[in-house]
Amino acid sequence: MLEIKNLHVSIEEKKIIKGLDLSINKGEVHALMGPNGSGKSTLSYVLSGKDKYEINDGTIDYNGKNLLELDVDERANEGLFLAFQYPMEIPGVQTSFFLKTAINSKRKYLGQSEMDALEFAKLMKSKAEELNISTEMLKRDLNVNYSGGEKKKQEILQMSMLSPKMAILDETDSGLDIDALRIVSEGVNKLRNSDNSFLVITHYQRLLNYIKPDFVHIIADGKIVKSGDYSLALELEEKGYEEISQTA
């Protein structure tokens, strides 16, 4: 699914990612954990194609394609989804309209016809219900005056409606209370199948109680310093980043 080799990234001359390797196969859930400034969010932006990041070295293969050559929207329409840490507000654009536009953009890219209005309404309703999102909220402007938790739920709604092949969750747990965390995690778990993959970026082990990863990686200073299974997250919780990084 995703194969990152020897990735070096800088922003405004400052090196952020310094030789990162990561391989994610179909059906796998990987957790990426690390302290502030270790390069976690940078990786999510580089994968989704945000500009201002300079790729100094390395390759990223995505389903046989050179990911770095694709535009942001091409990556998205090829099934790469980023659940934002800070979802953007789009004033004047109704949430449901945004969802419809996103779905139809993808269908257009794939050479399919637009989704029928009724089919769309049904899909949105069922997905929104799963996430405990009210229909009233879908009529509001996208993310405008949403609480932190509502914004994160909205990201997961978009994800479940677009059913990506490769989803990156950038600190989706930050700012969530325990109930919202559970609902969001359930939403993610429902999507998991043998064909898609997840990269879950988080500070805390807490989220991983709900979304059980197959692999856990610890990133420090722009490199993955340790990889393991779920138990690594527990070990990290106990010892902290500093000790783990040193023993690596």
């Binding site: 989704s48 194609g49 945000k50 500009d51 535009d71 942001v72 929207d73 990556r75 998205a76 329409n77 989804f81 980023l82 934002f84 979802p87 953007m88 789009i90 004033p91 004047g92 654009v93 945004f98 536009t101 996103a102 953009s105 993808k106 890219y109 402007d141 978009q158 677009l162």
Partner: peptide, 23 residues
């Protein structure tokens, strides 16, 4: 960037945001 990450090309993204602005 947010709109493009959801699959809209840059033209459609600008159109969407400006239309929201004018709503």
């Amino acid at each position: 960037f947010y709109c493009q990450q959801r699959g809209l090309n840059s033209e459609d993204a600008v159109g969407l945001i400006v239309n929201g602005f004018c709503k």
